[in-house]
C-alpha cells in the first residue's frame, strides 16, 4: 500500500446532522502502538455574555469543509511525527455536526491516538485551532429571547486564503 493510502486509512473525517458519538471516535483511534487517546468535544454552552442561549445551529460548505478537515487530519499525522522517523500520532477522527445542536451536546469532536501523551495533547490542541481557523462551517447562536447572531472565530483566516 502506498504511503498516502496508509495515511488516509489512519483518518476519519465527516460532517453529520446526527448526534456525535465520542465512543465511535475513541474506538476508531485506539491502536496497539498508541499509549494515549485524546478526546476533545466542543459542547453548546447555555449562555453568551448576558444572553441565554437556547441552541446553536451550524451550516457548512460541505465539500470545502470536508476537504479542510481531511487536510488538517493528514497534516497532524506528519507535523507531530519525530522528524519523519517515528509515527507519534497514529489515528485522527474529526467530526462536526450540522443543524441544531442543543445545550450540552457536542458540535465538534477531535479524537486522536498518540504514542506518548505529550504529542497527543499538543496535536489535539493544534488540530482544534486549525479547524476553528479554516473549516468552512458557520455557527449561529439562537437565544431564548428569539433573536440570533452569526459568530466569527477570532482566528478565522479564510479571507487570507488563496
Amino acid at each position: 500500500m502506498s504511503k498516502s493510502a496508509v495515511k488516509k486509512d489512519a483518518i476519519k473525517v465527516f460532517l453529520t446532522s446526527s448526534k456525535l458519538d465520542p465512543t465511535e471516535g475513541i474506538d476508531f483511534v485506539k491502536c496497539e502502538e498508541a499509549g494515549a487517546v485524546i478526546m476533545f468535544g466542543g459542547t453548546t454552552r447555555n449562555s453568551f455574555e448576558d444572553k441565554k442561549v437556547s441552541d446553536l445551529s451550524y451550516e457548512a460548505h460541505e465539500k470545502l469543509a470536508c476537504r479542510s478537515l481531511e487536510r488538517i487530519a493528514l497534516e497532524a499525522l506528519d507535523k507531530f511525527s519525530d522528524d519523519g522517523k517515528d509515527t507519534l500520532i497514529h489515528k485522527v477522527y474529526l467530526a462536526h455536526r450540522l443543524g441544531h445542536v442543543p445545550v450540552k451536546e457536542e458540535s465538534v469532536l477531535v479524537v486522536l491516538s498518540s504514542t506518548h501523551r505529550q504529542e497527543g495533547w499538543k496535536a489535539a490542541e493544534w488540530v482544534l485551532e486549525k479547524i476553528k481557523a479554516e473549516a468552512e462551517i458557520w455557527k449561529k447562536e439562537n437565544y431564548n429571547d428569539g433573536t440570533s447572531s452569526w459568530k466569527e472565530n477570532e482566528n478565522s483566516s479564510v479571507h487570507k486564503k488563496n
Binding site: Y58, K132, E136, W138, S156, V158, H159, N162
Partner: peptide
Amino acid sequence: KELGVEFNEGDEICIIPPVSSG
C-alpha cells in the same frame, strides 16, 4: 483577491465569510 481575477462562463463562485466552527 489581490490579483485581477477573470471569470469564465459557467464558473461557480462561493462567498466564504469568516468561519465559526466548533
